[in-house]
């Protein structure tokens, strides 16, 4: 039985999770909240601690601090085996024996986890690998290996799927296929936690985002919450941008952007104040607008421009 003590809204929660290697903190004070049934996009530059965190969630690495709860139960040595029975995972490279066929690899999983034929067939059909099962895995493309790895993780019919950079090395078609697969799995009620260092791979699939930088959680929430968190620059169109910039630079970070003056970190009241001051000083204003900000800009902001 999993999830004693009533319904739990979160599939994964961590409190003050940390890992230190030789005095160097790789993950620090992490409070993850992964809601049930979502696709949780776990983003961060290479080396930000994503893989270490995922390994801690799977009890492959012992946390130095903090605790992990999965389906409401603490993940410990004593509960590990039982909880792992509900978690499918793909960490690092896809796990498959190259000298065996896809079918033989699936049979290893079936025997080890005591699965029935239907479970295996369903997993293989989900990743659309049924036509390639009799081929040796060493002859598979990388995309097929990834799909087989996901099928091996899915065969146990997990409630939680943890995938570490599943699109690494795939071509655009392969990435798109994995993306659609993740959506399909989440629609089927599986909670999917997927990591990536590439925003574009996750942006369109994830319903909740967690952004990690230097082992710390920089942001956790929905896409809209993330966009709302950042105030876009104000652009003031004027025929005298140099003069206007010289004036506004006294109060706000300013730079000239073509025929406009760009001001950062201004709220509505601040914007009104700047506009009235410019008008008072006789500078014509043709227009005032907020710059359109992409999710990527926000990420770059959060992570200090490293990698996303």
């Amino acid at each position: 039985m999993v999830g004693h003590g009533g319904p739990v809204a979160e599939m994964i929660t961590t409190h003050d999770l940390g890992k230190t290697y030789g005095g160097r903190a790789v993950v620090e004070g992490l409070d993850l909240r992964v809601p049930k049934g979502c696709v949780y996009g776990f983003l961060g530059p290479n080396g930000s601690g994503k893989s270490t965190t995922m390994k801690m969630l799977l009890s492959l690495v012992r946390p130095t601090t903090g605790e992990i709860r999965i389906m409401g139960r603490p993940m410990r040595r004593s509960t590990r085996r039982e909880l792992l029975g509900h978690i499918g995972s793909l960490i690092e490279s896809p796990p498959a024996y190259g000298h065996l066929t896809g079918r033989e690899n699936m049979r290893l999983v079936q025997r080890l986890l005591e699965l029935n034929d239907d479970q295996v067939v369903r997993a293989v059909h989900t990743v659309r690998l049924h036509d390639h099962l009799d081929k040796r895995v060493r002859d598979y493309s990388l995309g097929m290996k990834q799909r087989l790895g996901i099928a091996m993780a899915l065969a146990r019919e997990p409630r939680l799927l943890i995938l570490d950079e599943p699109t690494n090395g795939l071509d655009p078609a392969g990435i798109d296929e994995i993306r659609r697969l993740l959506k399909q799995l989440a629609d089927g009620g599986i909670t999917v936690m997927v990591s990536s260092h590439l925003l574009d791979e996750i942006d369109r699939t994830a319903t909740v985002l967690g952004i990690l930088g230097n082992g710390r959680m920089l942001f956790q929430g929905t896409r809209d919450q993330l966009l709302a968190r950042s105030t876009p620059d104000v652009l003031i169109d004027t025929p005298e941008p140099q003069r206007a910039a010289a004036l506004t630079a006294q109060w706000h970070p300013t730079r000239v952007d073509g025929e406009a003056v760009r001001l950062s970190g201004l709220d509505h009241k601040g914007t009104a104040g700047v506009v009235s001051r410019l008008v008072r000083d006789g500078i014509d204003i043709y227009g005032v607008r907020r710059d359109a900000q992409s999710l990527e800009d926000v990420f770059m902001d959060l992570t200090g421009g490293r990698g996303l």
Binding site: L58, L60, R80, R81, L84, G85, I87, S89, I91, E92, S93, P94, P95, A96, Y97, G98, V109, L112, L113, M152
Partner: peptide
């Protein structure tokens, strides 16, 4: 085959 990790996640 990354078999160590796979076995570990299977208990």
């Amino acid at each position: 085959a990354n078999g160590w990790l796979f076995s570990q996640t299977s208990g």
